[in-house]
């Protein structure tokens, strides 16, 4: 079978299941307490310089844009991130917040490659390790299982493996060659959901992306929601709770929190805004202008939403994908 290989990149976040267990015991609570707070308070209390972050779903679909903008507004630096992103990771990179990226994809799908990632990578400003989409999700799943790694059959034989921190292993039962992915128990997980009660029992409509895995693989979990519902509604449909309250540290009520991305069944993507954005990020100057106009010049998400304007927002609601 030959020698087993290892990826050459240094692991950004080392697996520590026992450390994670101890952390959960000390910091998490089963108490039903009101966890509502503003973006500013959530970021101030729970995000620190040097933290490892992951966001879900991704920048043009059900993405935690209001919390992302607040991280940039507060000027946090030297963050590390699991990059399965479109706009939210792009903004963080553009704002100079990111040091290391465990990258799977940073681009705009049909709208092309990311000029922000190009400038950062080609200028050697960020350290990038390569992974696949499934691999990043499975790394979260491993952390959720409380184990240090998970064996899978992706990445094998490729340079994606070589420029990762994964390792080949031999199965003790079958002798098969497998790819061992290190577990990622992130410092801060950030998810945008449709609704929750004030304790943080969250419901998501439609696909779950990797929200279920990320919520269970986060030391600190910040959730933003479109709306708050009564606890009675949670109790009537408990099967709809995909993220239970005890995982959640901060709950931010952020209507249009995924803007300019879409929020399925609530509002459609703001094409006009994105077109303008994609045009601006072609240059560094344009990128900084966008960050200034939509983040640094505005105090909070509420003001951001006001600048988009009622008429535009109503049109996005009208254009949403209906069942």
């Amino acid at each position: 079978m030959g020698e087993l290989k290892s990826g050459i990149k240094e692991l950004v976040l080392k697996p520590d299941p026992d450390g994670a267990r101890a952390w959960m015991r000390e910091h998490k609570s089963m108490a039903l307490v009101d966890k509502r707070m503003t973006e500013a308070e959530a970021v101030r209390r729970f995000v620190q310089e040097g933290d490892y972050l992951a966001t879900e779903l991704y920048g043009s679909c059900r993405a935690p844009m209001s919390i992302t903008r607040e991280i940039i507004r507060q000027g946090l630096r030297n963050l590390n991130i699991a990059g399965q992103g479109v706009m939210e990771t792009e903004l963080l990179i553009a704002a100079g917040c990111i040091r290391n990226i465990d990258l799977t994809y940073q681009g705009w799908e049909v709208y092309g490659i990311s000029p922000v990632l190009r400038r950062a990578a080609e200028g050697g400003k960020v350290n990038i390790s390569e992974w696949s989409n499934a691999s990043l999700a499975w790394r979260l799943k491993a952390a959720a299982l409380g184990v240090p790694f998970i064996p899978v059959r992706s990445m094998l034989g490729t340079d994606t493996f070589k420029y990762s921190a994964a390792k080949e292993i031999t199965c003790p039962f079958t002798g098969m060659k497998l790819c061992a992915l290190p577990a990622t128990m992130v410092d801060v997980g950030i998810i945008h959901a449709h609704r929750a009660d004030k304790y943080g029992n969250c419901q998501i409509d439609g696909i779950s992306g990797f929200a279920i895995e990320l919520a269970r693989a986060s030391k600190k979990l910040l959730v933003s929601v479109e709306e708050i519902i009564d606890n009675e509604e949670i109790r009537t449909y408990p099967e709809r709770t995909v993220i239970p309250w005890f995982l959640v540290d901060a709950l931010v009520v952020a209507p249009f929190g995924s803007h300019p991305g879409e929020m399925n069944s609530y509002y459609w993507r703001d094409q006009e805004h994105l077109k303008e954005y994609l045009d601006l990020i072609k240059t560094e100057q344009g990128t900084q202008e966008y960050l200034k106009r939509t983040i640094h010049d505005l105090p909070d998400h509420e003001t951001y939403v006001q600048t988009i304007g009622k008429e535009r927002l109503a049109a996005l609601v009208e254009a949403r994908t209906m069942r």
Partner: peptide, 13 residues
């Protein structure tokens, strides 16, 4: 890199 593309995404899987 000379040119940085988006990366694997789901392609490798």
């Amino acid at each position: 890199p000379k040119v940085r593309f988006p990366g694997s995404g789901g392609a490798n899987d």
